[in-house]
Design a protein around this nucleic acid. Structure first.
Lengths: 227, 227
DNA sequence: CGGGGCTCCTGACGGTGCGTCAGATACAGT
DNA sequence: ACTGTATCTGACGCACCGTCAGGAGCCCCG
């Protein structure tokens, strides 16, 4: 639940490799390196991201990069932290106000699914790296993933539990499992959206299928029939 | 649909780097290298798998490895091909005979989910690499993934379509989307099973939540209430 | 049983990227 | 201008990659 001990490097003063706190010029260089890193992630794949390229792009030398980040992953983690912040904001906006009742409830499910799809679209390059590094066993990125999905997870689990306590929804099924499974579904489909399209399945159709599953899993109600 | 032009290297005679067809001794070495590769995948992570280590483990030299495989990925692909064959067998056994009606239908959904979970458990190291390489954009592994999931996908889509044509199920929703979404859910949860357990969600509960979603998505019927 | 001609193996090498110094360079204050 | 601190970088050693040319093993025929 609490994540106080899991701060990224950014929560404190950024320190250079030798321990000193960077001044104005240093912070500008650091920022430039970050921006170039984010930029290059859009083109090349994570594993083809060479320190020397980032440095050259930022008009500096590889050694300078290591002054501010112990490795490429650490730089990406800083960008990922920003993404997590955006995610919390985005997802809480989508789930806070929504009601689960009737047609409006189904519309809210659609909005939620659309929100996740859009978020994955927007941060695609970063999320690709996060998924990759998480699967590779990098705990720093696993942590990013957890922080990003935690709220979503809890919100859905809470909603499922609320319906259960009223005798609706999915009685007797662990609400955390419901939330986790739904998040897994949305996340995985979002991540492989292009693969689906390539395989001939329109995103529009995925969106509908997922929203219906979300709505039914939480409320136990059959969603309104599709147009 | 058709995959005739996508054969892995294994469908034809394995050839050595210089084009010749290996004899008895050569094939034994090749096999030994394959086994060591599979073995070492269980310990180290994919990216830490160095050719020199595989070679040493197999009691030979790095150069020998390159005699039989252009790169590490290619060796893993051979192992993956075997896995795909196992998968086709496993999954078709799970879906061929099953009926979707009533309580037995729900049991079949449970069996299906269990089957996927067990399969992912069994081939965990290999599947981790397949997922990883697919996400990294390696088309050879994306192809493995497609072949592995295609049947499952089609089976579920077909079942959904059948129910729709009887006025049941999810009328008006693209059956391919339903199949794809369900497979995505099962696969992603299976891949992150340990993550869920660590986070406090028992596999038993995930299994139930997923089976219910599968059953409902295909048949449109509410599954039997949980004990 | 010994030598010719295959198959099979490997030591050694050039290449690329990593990460780390020691020292060069820019800048700010006096 | 002068000095000390902040910032940068050229150059290096390391590790792994992938490729040769040539050595070692094996089989078979004479």
């Amino acid at each position: 639940m609490s994540a106080d001990h899991l701060d990224a490097d950014e929560s404190a003063e950024p320190r250079a490799a030798d321990g000193r706190v960077p001044g104005r010029r240093g912070r500008a260089t650091r920022q430039r390196l970050l921006e170039c890193t984010g930029q290059m992630l859009k083109d090349r794949t994570y594993r083809d991201l060479k320190v020397v390229d980032i440095a050259r792009e930022a008009g500096t030398s590889p050694a300078t990069f290591y002054q501010y980040f112990p490795d490429v992953e650490s730089a990406i983690l800083v960008l990922a932290d920003y993404m997590v912040a955006q995610g919390s904001e985005t997802f809480s906006a989508l789930t806070a106000k929504a009601s689960w009742k009737g047609r409006a409830g189904y519309e809210a499910s659609l909005d939620l699914v659309d929100g996740v799809l859009a978020f994955w679209e927007r941060f695609q390059p970063l999320l690709r790296v996060v998924d990759l590094a998480t699967d590779e066993g990098d705990l720093r990125f696993a942590n990013v993933r957890t922080r990003l999905l935690n709220d979503l997870n809890n919100t859905l689990a809470r909603a499922a539990a609320d319906h259960q306590s009223l005798g609706k929804g999915q009685p007797g099924v662990n609400p955390d499992a419901i939330g986790g499974v739904l998040v897994a579904m949305m996340v995985h489909v979002s991540a492989h959206r292009l693969g689906f399209e390539f395989w001939g399945v329109r995103t529009e159709d995925l969106r509908e299928a997922m929203a219906r599953i979300v709505f039914w899993s939480v409320t136990g109600q059959k969603p309104p029939t599709a147009g």
